[in-house]
Simulated scan of single mutants.
Amino acid sequence: MSNQFSNTAVLIFSRSAKAESLEKNLFSSQRKRFNRTIFQSLLDHSLHTAKDSQLPIFWIDENKQRGYNFGERFANAFEYVFSQGYDNVISIGNDTPELTSDDLLQAANILDQQKSVLGPTADGGDYLIGLNKSAFCKETFQNIPWQTSAVHKSLANYFKAFDCSTALLHTLVDVDHESVIWESSTDHSKLQSLKILLLKLLGQTIFTLFYRIPHTSSPSLLQKGLRAPPSFS
């Protein structure tokens, strides 16, 4: 790897797929067992994307996170990576299947020239947060209203307090519900592969129900909780 971005590291702030599946429910209650499979696919994508960027990677999962709430844990994660000698940290999560290594390198390039960069999502959040060590105030950063629709606006105001302009990457989709996967009109290969994976899981569920439910059962039992996805081309 070129030494061009040797002062920049990627922080993957995400619980393991197992922990995510226990805490978050992407699907209706009848399909809870899908969660871990989908979260594993999303996490693998984040890890592979970060690896492809050839930037140093720190994956801080539930076993390494420290703090009483999300804000404290997130701020502590940034503080830890900075303590390892890096001037710039680019943080991503596990719910942005459209993210590419080029996005990470673009963010790294921006941080070589200014103090902050954000990758916004359509719902008011950010899939990527990049900042220079000089723009990190732990106490203020941890009190951002994380996990709300006010995150992006609050981060923009946070950076204004440091009198630094904030560059914006393109807006991407974050997966916080199964409908995001079904209804996405993008041709992005990762989103399409998630659709295929969901269809496969649905097919396995229907197959299992067909052979496990007694033949005297009403056919309607096969339909409950197995809403078909919207049609897509």
Rank of each mutant, 00 (worst) to 15 (best):
D102E: 14
D102G: 02
D102P: 06
Q106G: 04
A107P: 00
A108Y: 05
L111Q: 04
D112H: 06
Q114Y: 13
S116I: 13
S116C: 14
L118Y: 02
G119H: 08
P120C: 05
P120L: 04
T121R: 07
T121H: 03
A122L: 13
A122D: 03
G124V: 06
G125L: 08
D126K: 00
G130K: 07
N132C: 12
N132P: 00
N132F: 09
K133N: 12
S134H: 08
A135L: 06
C137G: 04
E139D: 15
E139K: 15
T140C: 01
T140M: 07
T140N: 06
W146E: 01
W146L: 04
Q147K: 14
Q147M: 15
Q147D: 09
S149N: 11
V151G: 00
V151S: 02
H152F: 07
H152P: 00
H152G: 02
K153W: 03
K153G: 04
S154I: 10
L155R: 05
L155N: 03
N157K: 15
N157R: 11
F159K: 11
F159E: 02
F159C: 02
K160V: 00
A161S: 05
D163M: 00
D163V: 00
C164R: 06
S165Q: 12
S165V: 09
A167N: 10
L168F: 15
L168K: 10
L168Q: 11
L168R: 06
L169T: 11
L169P: 02
H170M: 05
V173S: 09
V175S: 08
V175K: 09
E178L: 09
E178D: 12
S179T: 13
V180G: 02
W182D: 01
W182G: 01
S184G: 02
S185C: 01
T186C: 07
T186Y: 12
D187K: 12
H188C: 06
H188A: 04
H188V: 01
K190H: 14
K190E: 15
K190W: 06
Q192I: 08
Q192T: 10
S193D: 14
L194Y: 11
L198H: 03
L202W: 05
I206G: 01
F207E: 14
Y211A: 02
P214F: 12
H215V: 14
T216G: 01
T216H: 14
S217E: 04
S217V: 04
S218Y: 06
S218C: 07
L221C: 03
L222F: 07
K224E: 02
G225L: 08
G225Q: 01
